[in-house]
Design a protein around this nucleic acid. Structure first.
Lengths: 355, 355
DNA sequence: AGCGCGTGCTAGTTCGTTTTAGCACCGTGA
DNA sequence: TCACGGTGCTAAAACGAACTAGCACGCGCT
């Protein structure tokens, strides 16, 4: 086993030309360099016959670029979401001819440093630094010597490189609009609120979602009927919060700050024999896999992780190519907001008597 | 920006020795090669001062090995599970000094070929070929020239390389035992069964789980009270199947072939005003994230994806090192069953009057 | 004085490719 | 007859590290 790889030298020998000739031909510069059609044909033929494939490591050494990206995140698998991001990035990278190294730091800064170093040692052409937490953090050093993109990380101040984040503000607006345009006015918030400062998580998502919601409500002369700031957005918390609301009457609508909270909210509502959406409407955020499985289907504003990953990889490759073409110019930058689409399912019902 | 990387030559110049001397010292063969302590100190000092890091690409070219693994799967993100596998593999790889390329084929054979080729072109030291479907499939060619491990793939016949799969047979036994030892005898199957041939999916998991269940039941003189083979294991199917069972009486216990089915089953039971586990006990497979969030917590046999990924990476590195040490010997092989632990939560109640 | 030997280091080749500079040949026009 | 220009190719130098073979030097011994 382990048939040795075919090298360019072998192809050249088989075609009876010099190595440099073979290289020229196979890299498409043959005609350009006035290699006769006959010789070119011989080389191509030999390459095909021997099943020649260029050794990417050697090319990487010679050219200094490896057609390789690094994807470093703090958590690959803690959520299905991270997987989607990676998938999006890998697909986009592949379409552009790049392979991707995936690394995971678990939030450990030392590990992040080591990983980044290991990636740079392997001459990656660019780096995607991703987080699952969308919170402000400081940027590791060394990201200025290699093209890089920040994914799902909102940095304080201008990082000087492209940043890809979901448009949480608009998502908040859309969730509130879905309720308001159904004629619902008695709206309760679970996860954050009722005021703009009532946020218990480090996530900036919470702030932005809340801001968007409040913006739309006040534009319609409304305010949240209640709100609970919660730091752990998990089903039991959702259950407790909803139960407390239900104890003092049936609300028209509940906004959950994520689908796990919504799951608990469903349980609380249904365990009281009430119906979603006939008695109370629910809207949420994330569109995690459970959202579609819940009964009735949960209307939720999706986090488009796949698209974000793809976007990041595309921006990174753009940056790499820009760098190659104009090594002195500063390179692309800016915050790229990815729209969060509203997935309308069956958890919102228009208020009878209104349209 | 983009400060050039420090090369060994620069370190050597700074330490006033030859490049070869610097190489020897930094690779630990200094004393071995009788380089004076003084010179060694100068080299190490210079390396530290300049922040020297060896260029992994160059080393890869020279040594032929790149400290890099490939993880190729048919679906990275279709389930949270795949992410866990990758995470396990990446962690184990990192602990052994390897970085990992992740690729995803979407089940497309052409793409798989291309990806595998691209990986081999980059001189990966080994390949993990993973699937999310645990079904028999044919092995791509070329896996014999590079160390490889199959992850979550059961191949027909001996692939000649290590294979890592979950122990579904024992999982089936454990699920059934959990019910039987609680004194439950009226046991209904949702997903497959009641007979050994009543399986509608291409997954071998279904067969093995069923086999394990039937084995334990018959060892106790029991047989399934009913069984429905289903090809799509999703909540609505679970709901329908459970509803049909409930229409003709209240069952003692239901085995769901995965957690999504169980989610539908919960909905069906609870919408009839019945209680889990007081009226009916439920056990399931997978331990997906929803299992812990359901009310009551779902007792389920976990698919240890993280452990499987870790195991695969460890076996692969073992194979690589074996290959390096004994290039002629055949290398490790065999099927490695990873135990599926039973996660006991609150969906099983012992039958009153029994122990 | 000459030989052998241990010590401490280095020159030079290799890995597989890209790329630049330029060689050898031929026909042509002066 | 010779410079000149075009044609078709190749030699050789990178890229950065690893590693083999072996050089120079000084010391002790005969």
């Amino acid at each position: 086993m382990a048939r040795k790889r075919v090298t360019l030298a072998q192809v050249a020998a088989e075609a009876e030309v010099a190595v440099s000739t073979a290289s020229l031909v196979l890299s498409g510069r043959g005609t350009d360099m006035r290699i006769s059609e006959k010789a070119q044909a011989r080389v191509r033929d030999a390459a095909a016959r021997l099943g020649y494939r260029p050794n990417a490591v050697s090319v990487g050494l010679r050219k200094g670029s490896t057609s390789t990206l690094a994807f470093v995140s703090d958590s690959v698998a803690s959520s299905r979401l991270a997987g989607e991001m990676i998938k999006g990035a890998i697909e986009a990278a592949r379409d552009r001819g790049y392979m991707v190294f995936v690394g995971e730091t678990g939030g450990n800064v030392t590990l992040e440093r080591q990983l980044l170093d290991a990636m740079v040692d392997r001459q990656v052409d660019g780096i995607i630094l991703a987080s699952m937490l969308t919170h402000g953090r400081s940027l590791p050093t060394g990201l200025d010597s290699t093209p890089a993109v920040l994914l799902n990380i909102s940095i304080d101040g201008d990082p000087g490189i492209p940043v890809v984040v979901p448009d949480e503000l608009q998502a908040g607006r859309d969730a509130a609009t879905a309720l308001v345009s159904a004629g619902l006015t008695d709206i309760h918030l679970i996860g954050a609120g009722p005021g703009l400062r009532d946020v218990r998580t480090i996530s900036t998502a919470a702030h932005l979602r809340l801001q968007g919601i409040l913006e739309v409500l006040s534009a319609h002369g409304l305010a949240p009927a209640s709100g609970r700031a919660i730091n752990q957005w998990l089903p039991p918390e959702g259950f407790r919060a909803a139960d407390a609301i239900l104890a003092s009457g049936t609300p028209e609508a509940i906004v959950c700050f994520n689908d796990r909270l919504a799951m608990g909210v469903y349980q609380a509502i249904q365990s009281r024999g009430l119906s979603i959406p006939d008695d109370v409407s629910v809207v949420s955020f994330d569109d995690s896999s459970i959202a579609a499985w819940m009964r009735p289907g949960l209307t939720t504003v999706a986090l488009p992780h796949r698209v974000m990953g793809k976007r990041a990889a595309d921006l990174l490759v753009d940056a790499i190519e820009h760098d190659r073409a104009h090594p002195d110019e500063p390179g692309p930058t800016g915050v790229h907001l990815v729209p969060m689409p509203l997935r309308e399912r069956d958890s919102i019902r228009a208020r009878p008597g209104r349209d």
